[in-house]
Amino acid sequence: MGVISFVLLLGGLVFYAGGSVGIIRFPDVYSRLHPAGKLDTMGLFMTMSGMALYVLSDWSISALLTALKIMLIVVFIFITSPTATHAMADAGMRAGLVHWSRK
């Protein structure tokens, strides 16, 4: 169980690292939103499930409750993060921000 949670945490960190590099390196708002969304969904899902498994490694009812709460964080972020990304992209389009393109 410990090994699986370690691997999950490490995988999540890889996604976080990629997302952070992407936010800095991508050329404009729309393309930067793309790694930001990735970071919130896959990175968060993997780190949180890693933590939930770690909590569950010594089994008890309260540990199960904690693990469920950790997974609830994932559920709520899955609702709000794409909404925020959508709202930002929408606002950019409506404000007339032209997307980046190779000349």
Binding site: F76, I79, T80, T83, H86, A87
Partner: peptide, 12 residues
């Protein structure tokens, strides 16, 4: 009018 933002906020 933005259905996505509207519904997501109402859900949260």
């Amino acid at each position: 009018f933005d259905l996505v933002v509207n519904k997501a906020a109402g859900l949260m």
